[in-house]
Design a binder for these strands. Structure first.
Lengths: 203, 203, 203, 203
DNA sequence: GATGAATGAGGCTTCATTCAT
DNA sequence: AATGAATGAAGCCTCATTCAT
């Protein structure tokens, strides 16, 4: 009956804890942005989910867009995937994608990018983070020329699969045999990351 | 004295021509959606560009979302690309993408998808059209099993490159030699469209 | 019981009349700005007084600030005062001020300037209008050099008396004999509008 | 690690010094009110400038408006000007104004009045202080009848010049020869402070 | 049938103040 | 006594849509 704060919630959270409130807001934003994209999430919704006052979003983060930036900055887009040898990258990218398809959702960052990718308001933020957490780490692990271009190609596959999966649903993707799908995607990523053929030879 | 619409403008278009007005609205919507995405285009902007009354959007199309659907239904996402032999598909897809990068923009449908892909309001519409104009035509040209899955993989690349290109800009992509890039993309599309390996053999 | 629109109001105004609604909004703004100053008037208050929807303020005028500008542009600050011979200007300015003190309020423009003079948000608007409706017309009627400076001096008296009268109330000013007060103010305005002494003679 | 307040800052001011904190708040308010006017200064800005806690504004002064009152009460509006013989008052007022125009800004009190003169929230406060620090001291130095009225007239010039100068800028005023301008303003103040003509003689 | 005025909801942000710590 | 987190209201503006003309 008391509209706020159930008595028996998990650990009746301490009021007046700036750090904790900030954390709750950030977490709420992470979830909502991942689910609905940047501009279909209102700051009121974020505050409500965090059980905090709306004004605190602005007090703590400055603006909705800055909060969005902090969400993106918070974690890696592809945790544990970009580490290791370049030769194993295609396989690990593929495994990551398949894991997402079969065992739950993409990480919040990837889903957020996915959902918000078309929004011109936050284009600079998206761009910065896409570079920093996807293209640059990938490129850093590639040998040879055109590293950035090849990293961009792989990033395109990641982003594209994310979008398409979300739009079309998981049915088709899940229907495939996981191992076969992994092999297929490995081939795609390998093609994306392969060195470009030398130009001008037979053009 | 007549504040609007001088009588003697160029080609004094007939007032009260339902079909023509409808067409102009559709064309205006096509252009604006392609440039700004679904929900950063207001119906007022559409009506203004079409020099038509705002309320006609609703009268003719029912709603903004329905108008969006009609825009998508209007034309192919990849004109002239999906025709021809399956074996040539990777090359033609790659050429199409490279052409877009080097000579102007994507077609309106693709740009519209690109811009609006994250918007939950129109998810069903996007889904329906993505199937109809991208996945199904592609799948129809593929031999063997998993046609839909392989088509989806190629569609993912198309969509992903669109998103990434718009976010990161064209600099990197344009820096590459066009023919080498075409070859690279051809390999990526070929990998996407290739038959899946038979599962369970060496897993 | 119908929350809006009493049955017996004066001339049950026609609904759906853009020009009339616009006029009502402008008039409401004129009154409220004159009474409370620019930023203590909310667009909601203006709309409420005009019995119109809030959004119409923005639709018709673009913004609150633009509406404010239109209010200022609407009428002269000193109607019928700035016309006539320069030699009579001090007297007419004084008579105008005394008239205001004894028979009602200043015109809305002057009161609006008065109230809003300290607001940095609309400084450019205030400046433009103060120039256009007060300083320039005055200067145009002055002979000799320093016309603008002398006009500014007279304008300062007008503005200053407005402010002080509003702050301190009318009691003191009304206690004085109107004719004596007029003569006094005439002398002040004459001093303000008089040519400056030639400089550098005995400096 | 300590995000705030390094231990070794310049003059590690004692925390918990009520009197000093109060003083700093007052000084910060003085400066900010003078520059931006009453209601474009937030209590947060005052507290930040004073490096004090926001809530102390309310604790020490009761409210923002009361703090504003205390600022006005703090010092004379026209220091060193209102002292001396009545016959010299016009000249000293003029010199003061010209000094302000040519060598820097008005004192904080005058600028504060200037900026905040239109704000109805603090009208009573403004009124009280305008009387106490401007009109009454002036009137006290005048001989003859109508002292208050004449003082009010002079105060109007001071206030009006302040407003106009801030709105229109200093260009025109500074273009004039300082001595000629002083003489001009002296004449204006003399007219304002002169005894009123006896009424009823030739009306 | 067509027009466009009007609507009501919702968007983000900022503020002075209160209250638990 | 002092802190600063939290509050609730209010600010302007934009939008898709409806309805009287």
């Amino acid at each position: 009956m008391r509209p706020k704060q159930a008595n028996d919630g998990p650990a009746p959270r301490p009021r007046r804890d700036r750090a904790a409130t900030r954390r709750r807001l950030l977490e709420a934003a992470r979830e909502l942005f991942a689910e609905h994209g940047y501009d279909h999430v209102s700051v009121r919704a974020i505050a409500a989910r965090a059980e905090a006052n709306v004004a605190l979003v602005n007090r703590y983060f400055g603006s909705k867009a800055a909060l969005f930036g902090e969400v993106l900055a918070g974690e890696s887009a592809l945790p544990h995937v970009l580490e290791g040898e370049a030769v194993e990258l295609p396989g690990r990218l593929a495994e990551h994608v398949v894991r997402l398809i079969h065992h739950g959702q993409a990480g919040p960052v990837l889903r957020t990018l996915d959902r918000s990718v078309g929004d011109p308001q936050i284009q600079p933020i998206i761009r910065r983070h896409l570079e920093r957490i996807l293209v640059e780490p990938l490129a850093a692990r590639l040998q040879g020329p055109d590293a950035r271009l090849r990293a961009t190609a792989a990033a395109s596959i990641v982003m594209g699969i994310g979008s398409v999966r979300r739009i079309l649903g998981l049915a088709d993707l899940r229907a495939a045999d996981p191992e076969a799908l992994t092999a297929h995607l490995t081939a795609m990523f390998a093609a994306a990351l392969a060195p470009l053929p030398e130009p001008g030879r037979d053009g």
